[in-house]
Every structure is written in C-alpha cells, then in structure tokens.
Nucleic acid binder design. Sequence first.
DNA 1: AATGAATGAGCGTTCATTCAT
DNA 2: TATGAATGAACGCTCATTCAT
Lengths: 222, 222, 222, 222
Amino acid sequence: MTDFIVPDLRITPREGGYARGQEGFEQILHAALEILVEEGSKALTLRRIAAACGMKAGNLAYYFPSKDELLRELLNAIISSYEQAFDVIVHDPAADAEQRLKRLVTLVLEDIRSKKTTRVFPELWAMSNHDPFVQERVHELYERARVAINELIAEINPRLPVEERELVALFISGSMEGMTMFAGYGKPFESRMPALEQIAVKSFIHLIGSLEPGEIELPRGI
Amino acid sequence: MTDFIVPDLRITPREGGYARGQEGFEQILHAALEILVEEGSKALTLRRIAAACGMKAGNLAYYFPSKDELLRELLNAIISSYEQAFDVIVHDPAADAEQRLKRLVTLVLEDIRSKKTTRVFPELWAMSNHDPFVQERVHELYERARVAINELIAEINPRLPVEERELVALFISGSMEGMTMFAGYGKPFESRMPALEQIAVKSFIHLIGSLEPGEIELPRGI
Amino acid sequence: MTDFIVPDLRITPREGGYARGQEGFEQILHAALEILVEEGSKALTLRRIAAACGMKAGNLAYYFPSKDELLRELLNAIISSYEQAFDVIVHDPAADAEQRLKRLVTLVLEDIRSKKTTRVFPELWAMSNHDPFVQERVHELYERARVAINELIAEINPRLPVEERELVALFISGSMEGMTMFAGYGKPFESRMPALEQIAVKSFIHLIGSLEPGEIELPRGI
Amino acid sequence: MTDFIVPDLRITPREGGYARGQEGFEQILHAALEILVEEGSKALTLRRIAAACGMKAGNLAYYFPSKDELLRELLNAIISSYEQAFDVIVHDPAADAEQRLKRLVTLVLEDIRSKKTTRVFPELWAMSNHDPFVQERVHELYERARVAINELIAEINPRLPVEERELVALFISGSMEGMTMFAGYGKPFESRMPALEQIAVKSFIHLIGSLEPGEIELPRGI
DNA sequence: AATGAATGAGCGTTCATTCAT
DNA sequence: TATGAATGAACGCTCATTCAT
C-alpha cells in the first residue's frame, strides 16, 4: 500500500552544466514547491524562493529566464510527478479489474491526504481558471487519470459504450478529487478518509456494474 | 428549476450603519467579486477595485480598515450568499425525500456551472489552506450543506446510524464539489454536466439505499 | 542681447489637483533636467530624480505613469522652451532683415554657450537616432527654426526660389548647431564664440545674397 | 571619390600581444560598435556584446578588465579610424588647394551620411560632455581635422594670420559636423546632402577668400 | 465621502563583476 | 580561453497604507 508514493517533483535533468548547476536547479524547484505548499501562491516570490535556497534573487535569473518560466517548470515537475505515479498503477499486474479499481481509489484518496496534494491541487485549480498553460497541463494530467479508470471500467462492465464509460470515469475522478477540501491534510475529516474510501469503492463499483447501455441520456451536439 | 439562483453577494447591513455609506460599501464588494471572478485573486488589488468603482484607492480606507478586512467581508458575503440559497432548498416543500435529493443534486451541479461558482470556489479552497478565517467560514458553509443532505438521507434510509449518514453526506457533497474543475464554467466537460447529474443522482440514491448499518468500518478514535 | 533667454522648461500646467501637486510636477521635471545636464542621460534614473526632489521613487509614479512618460514630458518641456524663445525672435520688430538675421545668429550661438543647451542637445541628437518620439519632436523644433530663417532669407534675397531658400536655411541652421561641440559650454573654444558669430554672420549673409537662382543643382526625385 | 572609406575600427594590436587573443579582442569591439550603431548606447551592455560574439558575458573579463575599459578601447578605435582617414585626405596629391578643399568637404559630408558616422558621433558628443576621456579623445580627432583644413586655408588665402585661419577652420569643421543631425543617415534631408555640399563648398571658399586680415575682432585673453 | 499626495516595502528583472572550473 | 555559477546593487514599477485637504 505504501509503495504508491508520488515523488515530490519529477525534474527533467538539464543538458550540460556542472553538477552544482543541476543541484541548484532542483533546489530552486523544491524550495518553490515547499513555499507553495506551506505558504500558498501569494508567498511564492523570487526573493523568498532564493532565500529558501540560500541564494540571492538575482541568481534565479541564471536558472530561469523569468518567474513565469520558473512557475511553468515547477508546475510541470509537479504534474509530471503525478503522471509518473499513475503510470505505475496502470501497469500494476494485480488481480482482477475490480481489485485494481479498489486499489486505485484507495491510492488516490490516500495521496489526497498528503500535505503536498491537499495544498497544491487547489492552487492548480485556482490558477487554471486564469492561466491557459496551467489549464492545459492540469487537463492533461486528469485525462491520463481518466484513461486508467476507463480501462478498468471496460473490464468490469464490457457492455458499456465508450461514451458512457468516459462519463463514468469523469464522475469517479471528480468525485475523488472533491474529497481534497474535506478529508485532505489538515481538513476536518482527514481521519475519516478510510471510511470515505470504503464508500467510494462500494459506490463506484456498483455504479459501473449497474449501468445499462443507453441508460444515461447523452445530450447530442456540443 | 431556474428559481435556484445564488445571489451574487449577501451583504449584511453594517452594524451601526452610521457614517459609512451602505451604497459605496456594497459597490466595492461587488466590484471586488467581479475582479476575483474575471481575473483571479492575483489581480484583486485595491487600486483595481477602486478603479472598478470609479474611486481612488485611498477612499477604500474609508469603508474598510485594511485590504484584509475587505477580503474577509467579501468572502463572508460570498459564502453567505450560498448559505442563503441552501436554506431555500432545504425548506422546499417538494414531494418525497428522493425527489428532493434529486433536485438538490441538480441544483448544486447546475450552480457549479455558473461562472461565479466555478471561479470563486477554487480560490476559496486555495485560500482556506493558509487562512484560518477562510477555512472556518468555508467549513461552516459546507456543514450547512451536509446538514441538508443528511436530513434527506435520514428520510430515505432511516435505518442508517447518524455517523454513517454524516459520512455519506460528506461523500456526496464532496463528490459534487469535485465536478467544479471538470464540468464547471469554461471547463472541458461543461456541456456534459447534465449527464453527470444523472450519474450522480443514480449513484447517490443507490448508495444511500443500499448501505447496511455497520457496513462501513468506522475507525475509532479521533 | 540678454533679453533672449530660453526658459529652462516650458511646462503646461496640469488640470486639477492641489497647488502642491503642480509644484511637485514641476519640481520633478526641473530635477530631471538638472540631472540630464549635470550627469548625462545614463544617470537619469527615477531614484536619482526622486532623491533630487526629496521624494521617494514610488511617488514619481503618482505624477508619471512610467519613466518613458516622464521623459516624454521632459523632452517636450525642453523643446517647447526653445520653440517659445524662437517665436519671440521671429516676432521681433527690429530693423531690416539683415539686422534681424544677425541678431538671430548671435542669439542662437549665445544660447549654445549656455550649459543647458550644450549639454542637452547632444543628448537629444543621440536619443533621436533610436527613439522615434524624440526624433519627431526634435524635427519639429528645427523645422520651426528653419521657417524663421527662411523668412529672413526671402526678405534679403527675394529672387531665390523657395526650394533653394529652404536648403540655405537648413545649411545655416545646421552650421550653427555644429558649433555646440566646439564652442559650447566648457568646450575648448567657448571663449571664441564671439569671433565665430562674426564669421557666421558674414558668411551666411554673403551666401544668401550671392546665390543665383538655379545655382544649386537640385537632384530631382526623392 | 569612393576611395575615402573610413574603416569601421582601427584597432592597435595589443601591446605585448601575449595570451589574450587578438581575434577575440577585435571581434568584441566590432560587435560593440554594431550594437552602438544599431541600438544605441543604452543597449550597449556586456551581455549583449558577448551574445553578439557568441560568448558569455563572463568571458569579456578576459579581454577587458572592465566595461569602462572596453568602452575606452572602442571609442579609441572608432576615433582612430577617422584619424586614419583624415591622414589619407591630407596627403592627397590632388590639384590646387581649392580643389583639395572641395574634395575634403565632399568626403566629410559623404561620410556623415554613413550610418556609422550618423549614429556614432552624437553618442560621442553626448558622452564627451560627462566623460573627460571621451572629451579629450574627441578633441584630438577634431584638432587633426582642423589642422588639415587650416593648411588648405593657408594655401588659398596666405595673407590670413594663423589665429584667424584657425577660427575659420573651426567654423568650417563645425559647420560640416552640424549637418549630421539633419542630412545624416535616415535623417529628413539625407537626400539633400549633395545640394548641401555645393552650398558648403561655395560658402567656405568665399569665406576663406574674402576675409581680410584683422576683419574678425579677436577678443583678447582666454 | 472622496481625492491628492506621499511613503516604505517589496516586486521581477538587469547589470557589471568575480571566481572556480 | 571560455563557461558556469553566484553576487550585490540598482533598475522601473506596484502595492497597501496614511493623512491632510
């Protein structure tokens, strides 16, 4: 169960440069993540990041041409870390599809309890409302999550047409994300997450299994 | 169906409404909300708010002792507007409990499609991670929502113990909120919200009806 | 002779505001001019200007939306001051045209000896090479100067066609400006300016009087 | 006529040409000149110069101990290039003195139309107002020019005392320089330069020939 | 009620420079 | 020779805030 650990950041190594440079690069992104998690996006200033690295602000410009670029790299590294974790689950040669779904739900909800996830995702959601880059990148992440869920649904209830499967996957993914604000790290129902996991698993599995093809009225057009 | 309109803001008249004009007070909060919705929290500066009111920044000090206070009043008015709306639903003298639940789910999910809700709630969630005042106020809002759901669950499945009812209400509430990032205003699946509503209703109703008392393992402690 | 004084700056009063505001506005422009004259354009930073006014840099933003705007206002006020001075000369009801030309040359060359003119104009010329706004504004100033010279030429040698008059006016104006770097304030031949004035007057007057219509080959086209 | 080409830069080989490659040294100065000409002194930063050479800024320190030193070398090389060109003219074994003067005026004014001269000299004039080194070096350059003109004047009008000759040479040199801002590269009257050349030649030759010794009142003292 | 004018702190960024590699 | 990495200072600018008018 504890083998599902989303790494803090997944940083693509820079080409060239000394070892010290790669260190500094990663140090900056880790510091930025820490500040984002601990103090929120408003506190995410270059001076603060630099201070957290024991650097001067000017030196950040050496690693990142602009704050915007730093942020992009940070968000990318954050999101990549989740994508990487998802890939691990998907290729998990576990028992049957239902077991794998149970496992996926458990793992996602457990991850939501981590401080990083609880703190970072609401920031991403808020940013994505006004920043197309974030929107796009977040969208990609969830798309990958839905693909995984989708495959499990197809195994559990093969009669379900693809369109309905996708909707159910969307509903399941969203349902889980929605727990963040209530049972995430430091939230009032943090300790209730295990119970919520049981409810979620039971609910999702029944939903998948009970849906008849065509049962959901799909609005045509747009 | 369209009678469920969350008012933009619910502004409680200033206690001891002396001096400070109620009019300017409300104008400022509405301008602030609009900026928050349209441009995000980063753009929510006093200068911008003042400009949107046709005022100069200095004059805001007449109405609010500080930006922080203005923000508190704004968030409070936003959250109050939702609370007010919830009260309306709860006292809806509709048919049976299941019908009322269906209606509640529909109304909540429809509201999530509104630009205001899609834009404001992620901001609230992000802020609540670092601002105890926001956290507390958001918690209150959702508590009220869960109470309403809880009552409906009790009617539908009276055998369910209160603790399990509360968990289910929490799950349902969180599930719905989780749709915001996917099928909210301007989101990729905005147009799929009606289908999601069907899935949600079906899923929630089955969940409520099918749960056996004691089926959920409740961790003792905390 | 000393009645030809180019005012330091010609500042168009701002509309509205307190008296203190107009003061600050003018103070800033005067301080900026002084720095430009005494230390050159490289030293013309907002912090320095503010310091010279006893202000903090942030307050400059209250008067000018950007440094660029401040510079535009400064250059405009500088150039306007010369235009104003020129208008005075032109409408001078002095003796005959030749006398008026002598007087104009004397006055221009005397002005060139002033510290302000010696220091500011090379900056303007340099800036105008890369800043279209400065180029345009400087062009306007000299155009006005040439118009004045042109009128005098027309009186002295009425047979000269307009095109040739304009070229001679251009040559005379340029000749005078060219003294700046050699006999301007603090330059090696500053003390020789009176002698240069005599040479210039003699040379210009003969040139004007001796030119035959058509003597200058005018390249057709462009 | 076109044999009068001012070389871009005249770079004296490094004394004790050890170590520091002459090649990189020249490359840097050429890049700096290009930036000065194309973008102006404000854009003349070490980073930009280095980038134009395909180097990193740090490497410039290998060739020049400081930016100031680089600038000195640059300006020196620029000015030297003009001095070299002047020497060529002076030793031109052309016909009589008047012809040589005509040729000199033509060549100088043609050179003024070049982009390099039009762009660089106003920068030099502006810098010389605040930088004694530049002032001194520019002074030297023009002194050499005046010497050449002076010799021609002495040939054309041998009766003229040396002091008056020098003043006339100064006037002629300054007159020509003054065309830069009006008929230089990209200036409004660029295409009128040939006509200005005719005017200048006619005017200068008459001035030289017509002056009587003692006609100019020379102020005694400094 | 509201503006005008000012402040002090901080923002992201650029600069010349240094020095180990 | 040249880059990588870092610094310290300054840049133009924006911010919330204050207070006299």
